[in-house]
Structure formats: structure tokens, C-alpha cells
Design a protein around this nucleic acid. Structure first.
Lengths: 127, 127
DNA sequence: TTTGCTGCAAATCCTTTGCAGAGGT
DNA sequence: ACCTCTGCAAAGGATTTGCAGCAAA
């Protein structure tokens, strides 16, 4: 656990904004001005491999990272791409659902909710 | 509907492999050798906007395209990235699940299953 | 002294875009 | 003529990688 890695993890743990690698880079640079973007990418990769953080590859736009390693869902704003935790008590029994319809060995699923965040709703529907 | 667009749609409708833009390019080039990759991208975009095909942005790796415009799920092989239709009778009532826990206006969700395809299972567990 | 990590820069991959010319109406 | 589309090539964004030096065990 190098200093760089430590700082990246700390910064990520302190926010709930699910920043992209680039945003993490900006955050960390305040404490380690000479850190490189490559190092940030490398450490985000390592941290997510070890399970210390989560890598959210959901789609299109840059990947996001989540300092909370616990399994939970997210909802993404269709308008501004904001990503927010979405506590939902959903547990799909994928084994049962799919084993008869595909010859795959199903091991999990990726689920992300889509919608409009309060800010974007406000803009399109001013009070 | 130009010739190029027509051919791209036809090719996509004939397969069930969920090809990437690059693979569509290869398929179409057999019939229109001088078509450009840019044109393929442009038409895939247009076709998915009009709902004639689906763009599957699921994650990381290149986007895939699906000649079947009807709503259905997919399962992705963790090992080889193969993408296959996954008929599953799942309907999440997202409004109900999430409206109390986030201030978003929920409009849908993205769900993709993960697993190992028969071919990759075979490789790791030869009969 | 070996191993792994860094900063830097260049490279890579996928996708989009500017532009001038071609095609269709 | 007008408008849209094309092919081509160059640009773009996000991410990865090669390399030489550095740091810690």
C-alpha cells in the first residue's frame, strides 16, 4: 500500500459522488500535486481488484468508482449522468431464472436504474 | 434509407451474434467493399435512434448492436465477452422499489446477466 | 538487490467529426 | 439546385502501456 494508493483510497472513501478516474485525479492532486493520471488508473484498478472499492463500468461515459465496497445499486440520471446510490431490496434468483433458457453458467448480473435526478427535474419543471 | 443503411440493417437482422460496430463493418464490407467505418457508425446510430435496432452499451468493451429491436435481456460471458440473448421473465416495478429511497424520477433500468458461456466452460472443464 | 511502484509520455482502442464530393428528388 | 449522405482522414476522449528511475523490503 503505497502513499499514492492510500490517498486515492482515502479520497474515494470520503465522497459519495462516484467520481470518474479523472475526477479522482483532480481530488488526489490537491494532496499529491505530482501524481500522474496513469498512477491513478493503475491504483483504481488494483483497489477494485482487491475489493477495496468498486469499479462501475455501467456504460458509455467514463467509468465511475465507488469508495463503498459493499454491494448496492445505483441510479443514473439520463440528463446529466449523475450517479447516486439507490437502496433497493432486489435479489434476483438468476440461477433459477436463466438456467433453463441458456446453456451459460450464470454467476450474477449487473443492474442499474435510470431516471432523472432532482436537479434535472427542477430545470425541466420549474416550481 | 440509403443502400448502405439498408445493407447494414439486413446484415444485422440476419445474425444473432450482437456484433460490435467493427464486426458490422466487416460483414457489410463483403457487400459494399468501399463503405467506410464512419458510415457504419453513423448508420448504426441512426438505426438505433429510430428503434430499428438496439444499441447495447452494457460496458467496457465496444458497444454491441442487436438486430432484434424487441425488448429482451442478454447474458455476457465473463471469459470471452460473448453476448447472447437471455429470455427471462423479469419485470421490476422500479417506481415502487425506488421512489421512496431516492428523489429521482425513475424511468427504467438496465439489466445484464453475467456468466460463463458453454464454450468457455468446456475449456476450463474438459469433459 | 530485488521487486514493485512511480511519473512521464507515447500508444492504443473505440468512436466521432470536418470536409468535399456524389446521389437522389 | 438542394439536401442528405457518403468516403476519407484526422481528431477526440478514455484508458493502457513502455520505460527508466525511485523506494522500500
Amino acid at each position: 500500500m503505497t502513499h499514492q494508493r492510500q490517498v486515492i483510497l482515502e479520497e474515494l472513501r470520503q465522497v459519495h459522488t462516484h467520481p470518474s478516474a479523472d475526477e479522482v485525479y483532480d481530488m488526489v492532486r490537491k494532496r499529491i500535486p505530482r501524481i500522474s493520471l496513469g498512477t491513478v488508473y493503475r491504483n483504481l484498478e488494483i483497489l477494485s481488484e482487491t475489493g477495496a472499492i468498486q469499479k462501475l463500468e455501467s456504460c458509455g461515459s467514463p467509468k465511475r468508482f465507488d469508495g463503498n465496497p459493499d454491494d448496492h445499486y445505483h441510479i443514473r440520471c439520463i440528463a446529466c449522468d449523475r450517479l447516486v446510490d439507490a437502496p433497493a431490496d432486489i435479489h434476483l434468483d438468476v440461477e433459477r431464472e436463466l438456467s433453463e433458457t441458456t446453456r451459460f453458467k450464470v454467476v450474477g448480473y449487473k443492474l442499474e436504474f435510470l431516471g432523472f435526478c432532482p436537479q434535472c427535474l427542477e430545470i425541466s419543471n420549474p416550481a
